[in-house]
Computed example of a mutant assay.
Amino acid sequence: MTGIVFYFHAHQPRRIRYYSFFDIGSKNYFNDDLNKRILDRVVYKCYKPALEMIYDNIIKYDIKVSFSISGTLIEQLELYHPEILELWKKLVDTGNVEIVSETYYHSLAYLIDKDEFINQIKLHRKKIKEIFNYKSRSFRNFELVFNNEIGEIVYSLGYKVALTEGTEKILGNRSPNYVYKLKINNLRLLLRNYRLSDDIGFRFTNKNWSEYPLTADKYYLWLKSTPGDIINIFMDFETIGEHIWKESGIFEFWNKLFEYIGKEKYFETYNITEAAEEFNYKDELNIPELISWADIERDLSAWIGDSIQREALDYLRELYRKFKNNEKTLNTLRYLSTSDNFYYMSLKYNSDGDVHKYFREEAFATPYDSFISYMNILRDIELDQAIENRN
């Protein structure tokens, strides 16, 4: 029987505010009013109805799903919407839901400092244990960023399986619809089927798409015609109801798709670790270069492709080196390591640029506003520490 893994990533950053040169010294870095407004909306449109929908389908059809939930989202839910964490716990308690580890701050920590990368993974693992009484055995880096070295690190931390993009860069002409093994160790890899995932995540509401409208009937037939052992459908959880509104029929689509899978028994749904253990690995993969699930390039250009992004990252690295032993400053720098801060600075255009703008525009009008604010905050931190050290 062919397997399916449904994996959803849930994340909200702690967004910084517009921070001009004249704000330096105020130390009011974060736009928490905006963060709460956005969270309130996403809870209403996505988290609550989508979690309830998935719970209902677990009960009806024994569907299995996997989630990763960033530490920054968990913090905001603890503050403003603890009922959503209770709802997530209810799903986990069914035994049909796997929680995946990641960096606590959904961050570029791997690009900043390897020890910090490990520390953020441990922080997230501790938080997941605290909230859900759950020990994760699988790992995903932010936006599925991965290479051999990341595989070495997470395997050394005890993880059995990692997620990344099923791009031709690593597969060549092989299919993503199998379990693979990292060549350098025994870490299993599940690879996103980006075509089938993006048919929902990016093309569902595209009226210019030749397959529009996408119905559950059509999609289910596509799944049935897909060869391989395991089909990995990975996407942002916020796709359901927030990025793609309820009025589009997205909830009806998922309910019907789960019904087909549950009733027809053509497919078996698996959690991530279950799938990695159930199927023999197809082949070994060597992944020397960093890949991701972002943009057409499937690389890191979404975060460090432009000179302003690289300048910001270099400055952040410098401050990490200087102040990593200062607990208060390190905590602030960790929020600033969140990948969204760099994503907002992207100067890309065309379709990828539109996606960057969609996520940025509630916080900043332009990439340059994001960059200027970010750099002024870093300058403020550095100046504050210089004054403190003199005293």
Rank of each mutant, 00 (worst) to 15 (best):
I63D: 13
R17Q: 08
K129L: 10
R192P: 13
K36M: 02
W245F: 13
R298F: 13
F359A: 00
M375P: 02
D23N: 14
E86S: 12
I38H: 01
E149M: 02
Y44N: 10
E297A: 08
A294Y: 02
L87P: 00
I308C: 01
N177W: 09
H356R: 12
A276S: 11
T205D: 14
P227M: 11
G201M: 08
K48C: 05
A109Q: 08
L182R: 09
I184G: 05
D380N: 11
S346H: 02
L300W: 13
T167S: 15
E98Y: 09
Y159M: 11
L144S: 06
K207C: 00
I118G: 03
N255E: 14
H356I: 04
D198P: 04
L77C: 02
G95A: 07
E78G: 02
I118N: 05
D62K: 15
E242I: 01
L171Q: 12
S68P: 02
K60R: 14
S26W: 00
I387Y: 14
R390T: 11
T226V: 10
A162F: 08
F67C: 09
N341R: 03
V355Y: 07
S197Q: 03
L290V: 06
R15L: 00
L34M: 03
M345A: 04
N325M: 08
F364S: 07
H9Q: 12
S351R: 06
D295I: 01
E165C: 13
R203E: 13
I231T: 07
S101Y: 04
A312H: 04
L187T: 09
F132S: 03
I118W: 02
V97Q: 10
I118F: 01
S248F: 05
D295S: 11
I121A: 04
L77P: 04
D56F: 00
S370I: 04
Y134M: 05
G71Y: 01
R203W: 07
R41K: 15
S337W: 05
I54T: 10
L189P: 07
E86I: 00
I170H: 13
K218G: 08
V42W: 06
F21K: 15
V97N: 04
Y281L: 09
T329S: 10
L221E: 15
F237R: 03
R321E: 13
E238F: 07
D115Y: 02
A363H: 05
D93F: 02
N35Q: 04
A275E: 08
A365H: 06
R125H: 05
N173T: 14
R174Q: 11
L73I: 07
Y349Q: 09
S337N: 12
I387T: 08
I233N: 05
Y80C: 01
S136P: 01
K218V: 09
K169A: 08
E211A: 11
I231H: 05
E143M: 14
G305S: 10
